[in-house]
Design a protein around this nucleic acid. Structure first.
Lengths: 214, 214
DNA sequence: GGATTACTGTACGGTCCTGTCCATGAAATA
DNA sequence: TATTTCATGGACAGGACCGTACAGTAATCC
């Protein structure tokens, strides 16, 4: 973890204070270079690009692993945060559309795609990072949608026999091959209009497949 | 590429012949260790595990990159080979089921998942490998299904407005979150019965969504 | 047997990396 | 101003790796 704070926390510090801007520059540059080149990038490269001495990195972080962990944790929080509330009286189409746009926008964003690449590329050395990210992000969204589909089926508006499977199908329809094509560096970011088009198409198809027959 | 054959190809060789078993052992071991640890694994580790001297690797391959390329090319061929023919008189359900089982079995197999991890992890250094693999594998399957959906729509059996998008949706439904969960080392291989269940569910849902209304 | 080629084991040069040490200078507080 | 803390830059040890070189041995063909 990050270097522990000095023992005397409340007492005023007496010398030159830590330059917060340098710390931020290190984090931002390290994120950029870890994302671009993977864990193998050297600390010297990071330090130079951040306009900082390599020693300063060691002043703020215990080790390379520590810096790496800080970035992973921070980025994971950014991506998995803020799952919008489902308003109870919304129609299935509204809920699916909102959930779909949110999901697709996040999971196909540059930051998330680079993050996934990094997690996959270092999954052999850090096998717990991927599962943790998934559980806090996509896994949570999946559970939310599954619960919604279950409720709507009980209410009689939908006819979903296996909510978890259907929820996976919905998210899968949204992504299609795009997630694969993004991580393999084939496609760039998806324009908002295209996201909207894919969500509308998937929502309509999903509702045709799982609406309660009249 | 692999070390060029001697110039005098037809003439009989005169000394000790190359040990084909050693070459095979190197390739198989290198594949295994590249898959497990990524490109960063050392040649010495590969040589020891293959029961071979490190020099022998350099006798058979020009460089580490050369060995890596040989494995990528070979594995890519294995995964992307053998796309079954679509019989023209088969029903959409039959075609989708056959295509779905083949796709899901391959894309979620240990070998293919490890291969994707490797391609993603080394995509910064070797940016063309991923696109090549996709074009020869999943991309080809996508085009095939899109063409089929187009034909069936013209025949009047299906009602698909955007065949490529619908084909992506179908493959996406099959995968759901499974591809992500596999590459992030969350899930293991999927049992055949589970594959069958997911294919059946996705095919049924897809047909409900895209069959021509009566 | 003799010639020729393949494999082994060791060793070396060169590069790069992490993590640490240290001397010097800069920035803040008392 | 004196003191404390932070930042810099250079240097170093230790290790890992790639690619090459070389001498010795094994396997095969003429």
């Amino acid at each position: 973890m990050t270097r522990a704070a000095p023992i005397r926390r409340g007492t005023p510090k007496r010398g030159r204070p830590v330059d917060a801007a340098k710390r931020a520059a290190i984090l931002e540059t390290a994120r950029e270079l870890f994302f671009e080149h993977g864990y193998g990038i050297g600390l010297e490269t990071i330090a130079v690009k951040a306009g900082v001495s390599r020693q300063t990195i060691y002043n703020l972080f215990d080790s390379k692993d520590d810096l790496f962990a800080a970035i992973v944790q921070d980025t994971s929080g950014q991506i998995t945060a803020a799952l919008a509330e489902l308003s109870p009286e919304a129609t299935p189409r509204e809920v699916l559309t909102a959930l779909g746009i949110g999901f697709l926008t996040k999971i196909l964003s540059d930051r998330a795609v680079q993050f996934q690449r990094l997690l996959i590329g270092s999954s052999a050395s850090f096998p717990t990072l991927g599962p943790t990210f998934y559980a806090n992000g996509p896994g949570r969204g999946l559970a939310r949608l599954a619960a919604f589909l279950d409720r709507e089926t009980e209410t009689g508006r939908l006819a979903v026999d296996d909510p978890v499977l259907a929820a996976e199908q919905f998210f899968g329809m949204l992504m299609g091959h795009r997630s694969m094509r993004r991580t393999l560096r084939i496609d760039g970011e998806m324009p908002e209009a295209e996201i909207r088009r894919r969500v509308d198409s998937a929502v309509s198809a999903f509702l045709r497949a799982y609406s309660k027959p009249a």
